[in-house]
Design a protein around this nucleic acid. Structure first.
Lengths: 257, 257
DNA sequence: TATCATTATGTTATAATGACACAATGATAA
DNA sequence: TTATCATTGTGTCATTATAACATAATGATA
């Protein structure tokens, strides 16, 4: 059976191509219908939902590994991706657990690099939900789906904790760096942008003050075009002023929201 | 020769007790005579100055490993220590480099876990310079000294970059979290605290506005005692209000400096 | 053509901030 | 003994930023 061979090979030869004891897990946030989503895989080995993750090639920069993993799962490239924390509880992945996972796949081995303890580096990614067409799953998983951040399923290992930390980190970052370029379509309205901020920060913002501050940051360009087919007054479309957006990513916005 | 045996044993048996491919480097900041210092070791293997670092035991939490390494070098315990970044350039530690280091120690081996590429996790530590009596060096180094942040010597591998990143991270953190508890003696004056902030932020602050903000944060308790033996008006001593300090560490100060 | 939810823009009171003034202190030196 | 003076402790004020709120414009729907 092909899948069995691939899994078996991975368990027996992975140490030849990957760094030992260290993995990557990506918390991939998407924004859709005013809700914040996270991309999860359903694993074959634990029958639970897990963050898309992987390992670092022996000659690979960790950031490149994260890019590669993200590309494999979402088909997305050039993503605003950043490491945010290393998770290293000794009990987060023990030999017993990892051996049981392999058994669940219908295989048994005495030894494997995969049985060892792994320290995992959490990466944050913000992606445009609408651009993610390809929802692949890897050889260890059967499904790849978006979940609402407020109604996550039972999670593999400490992945719930990783998501919590990722969200906290993003909320902190939001006060310094703009977000949206990777989460929204190219053209978007002010209410859409505001809703994004409200969803991530999990609090209501004053519509007028929000607009004043965001406009003041000069990271937006207003288009003449207005949104069509809306019930009431049509809002203008905006685009990000990429040049100013980039500098704001570096130096911050200079205000809180 | 005892040292040779210890080193040889470390190179040959380390993989039995440590995680592979992952190390820790500590940027230990101290504050003394109005200058920000960093603690460095002079290595026997590269003849350069290096950050105190080490490895993670197979069953050890990474934070505990960092604590252990810091304790070994400074004799300090219960330190405000935090991971701030993972450094993972593939070329930061290659087999050729690592093999040369061993050769510099007067030993040669074909294979060793120490020859492999290491990804390193940077930890920040802020310590009270005056409390650091014990400046030990480990088996790979001959000296352990404080260096002024502005006049660092030639550094091992990418350790200069690690220090730069550590400092940037600390400057960002400073706007949200108080510092000082681990950097200053128990009793300190307002000018001393201000000088600490000025040194870390690398800019002058208005004396009166600084005092107003810090007092407003309610993290200080003023003592009746004033500093003795000073040329002009004697400043009051302050202590940190540890209860409020702790909460400020969590929720932030609420203002910039 | 009136309605109405929504957008776009403006106003105001309050709080935070930066720049600056001046009196109090106390060791030092005349 | 007393004047000096750099430094500390506290206060003021103009400016800016912020939150809360008001009103006009829009355009699809009824």
């Amino acid at each position: 059976m092909d899948l069995r061979n691939r899994i078996s090979s991975h368990y027996q030869n992975g140490q030849e191509i990957y760094l030992r004891n260290i993995s990557i897990d990506c918390v991939i946030f998407g924004f859709h219908e005013n809700e914040l989503k996270v991309l999860l895989l359903h694993t074959l080995y634990s029958n639970l939902w897990a963050l898309p993750g992987g390992f670092i090639l022996k000659e690979e920069h960790m950031d490149d590994a994260a890019d590669r993993i993200l590309l494999d799962r979402t088909g997305l490239d050039n993503i605003y991706l950043q490491q945010f924390h290393v998770f290293s509880k000794p009990e987060r992945s023990t030999k017993e657990i990892n051996q049981k996972f392999l058994k669940n796949l219908g295989l048994e081995l005495e030894e494997s690099w995969m049985f060892e303890r792994f320290v995992t580096v959490g990466y944050n990614a913000l992606v445009d939900f609408n651009k993610v067409k390809k929802l692949e799953s890897d050889i260890f998983s059967s499904k790849c789906e978006w979940f609402n951040i407020d109604s996550l399923p039972d999670m593999h290992l400490d992945h719930q904790e990783i998501i919590n930390t990722a969200l906290e980190k993003m909320q902190l970052d939001l006060n310094y760096h703009p977000i949206g370029y990777n989460l929204l379509p190219e053209k978007f309205t002010m209410p859409e942008l505001q809703k994004l901020y409200e969803t991530v920060l999990n609090k209501k913002l004053d519509r007028r003050n929000f607009q004043r501050k965001i406009i003041g940051a000069k990271i937006l360009k207003r288009l003449e075009e207005t949104k069509k087919g809306v019930a009431h007054k049509a809002p203008h479309y905006y685009k990000f002023d990429l040049k100013n957006y980039q500098t704001a990513l570096k130096v911050g916005l200079g205000f809180d929201l």
